[in-house]
Simulated assay, not measured.
Amino acid sequence: MMRRLFLVLTVALALTAGDFEDGREMFNLGHYEKAAKLFEKACVAGDKRGCYALEYMPSAARQARSDYQAVSKKYEERCRHGDAAACFKLGVKYNYGLGTRQDYRTAVTWYQKACEFGDGEVCYKLGRHYVDGKGVPQDYTVAGKFFEKACAEEVPAACAWLGYLYGHGYGFERDDKQAAAYYQKACEKGDARGCYYLGHMYDKGIGFRQNYAKAAELYEKACASGVADGCSGLALLYQYGYGVESDEKRAMELYGKACDLGSDEGCRFYRILKGAGR
């Protein structure tokens, strides 16, 4: 029953991507009311793109395209006078192609202004652009600088990314202690990937003395928040009794959850345990 529920949730999240794309199409056709409803639906279902689009739309969605362009000019003027929110909304416009051609490079320009004016969330988005090479050359060092700004502004995902860069030597000299510190901060602030990566360090004895019980605790947090790797890691500990009491039934359940969350490894181990009649 639980596996079926997770499968339904996974499918539902996939469908929200269609709500956003449909909303963007309606927006660019000038059907702003329909677009707003689709963006709101996507946002409520967990698609952040829908939320970002709604940030841009409120004062423009119900106006004619000419009025909408006038609103864009107002945002440009406000941005130039230090309004971080206005800069962010302009970045959203170009990042997602709302009423204009999608243009990552121009989006980055506006996001950078918003970041300079102290918007940590936008600094994080900029860091992701430099990691992914969207509109800018891929550059982990520059990404790290934006993540540092965002992490200082208490954006947990940025702290997790900093941990990842330090832990893998991308853009910085590899430093396991720094990686662990950033993962710890991210996890404490609610970023599930941070919990998973910190758990992995305890699991493998990277930067710490190996501690399976601590790894299990952190994997549990990550898994509960929908991180497939956290579920797989915790399943392995239950399968072999590392840091927890051995429980192959629980291990199979966790592998099944990881599978439903999209982990090929979880699917493979779930089939193995199920085939063994456990």
Rank of each mutant, 00 (worst) to 15 (best):
A114T: 10
Y52C: 06
R105T: 08
K34P: 01
V142E: 14
A157M: 07
E76L: 09
A60H: 01
G82E: 04
S59V: 08
P58V: 04
F147C: 00
F147I: 00
A107K: 02
Y52V: 05
E55G: 09
K89Y: 10
D132N: 13
H81Q: 15
C123F: 13
G135I: 07
T109K: 13
Y104F: 14
K145R: 14
R128N: 14
V92L: 01
E55N: 14
V92E: 03
K145N: 12
Y124H: 13
D103Y: 09
Y140G: 00
H31Y: 08
E154Q: 15
F146P: 03
P137S: 05
T100Y: 07
Y124V: 00
A150E: 11
G30C: 08
C87W: 11
Y56K: 08
Q69S: 14
L29E: 15
Q138L: 03
Y130I: 06
A42C: 03
Y94F: 12
Y111I: 06
Q138H: 07
F146D: 02
L29V: 09
E55K: 13
K145D: 12
D119V: 08
R62K: 07
Y104G: 00
F88A: 14
K73R: 15
Y56L: 11
A84P: 06
C151R: 13
G97S: 11
P58S: 01
C43D: 09
A157K: 12
E76A: 10
A85W: 12
A70C: 06
A60W: 00
Y56N: 07
K134R: 14
V71W: 11
V92C: 01
G30Y: 10
R128K: 13
Y96C: 04
Q63G: 08
W110M: 05
R78V: 00
D47M: 05
R65Y: 06
R128W: 06
P58K: 03
H31K: 06
P156N: 02
T141H: 15
Q102Y: 07
P156S: 02
S66G: 03
L54N: 07
A85S: 14
V136D: 04
G118A: 12
A114C: 08
A85L: 14
Q63E: 11
G120C: 13
C115A: 07
R49M: 04
D139C: 07
E55I: 02
A35D: 03
K73M: 13
G127H: 10
E116P: 04
K41M: 05
A107I: 04
A84K: 08
A150C: 11
G97A: 10
K125P: 02
V92H: 04
L38P: 04
Y75V: 01
L38C: 03
F147E: 02
R105P: 02
H31V: 00
E154L: 13
Y94K: 07
Y111L: 01
E33L: 10
R128I: 13
E55F: 10
F117P: 10
G133M: 03
G120A: 15
Y130C: 05
G97H: 12
T106A: 08
A35V: 05
A86L: 02
K113G: 02
D103C: 05
C79M: 05
A45M: 11
V136S: 04
K149T: 07
F147T: 01
L98C: 05
S66P: 02
Y111W: 08
D139Y: 09
G50D: 06
T109Y: 04
P137A: 03
F147V: 00
G50A: 06
Y96W: 11
G46S: 12
F146R: 01
Q138C: 02
H129K: 15
A157S: 11
G82V: 04
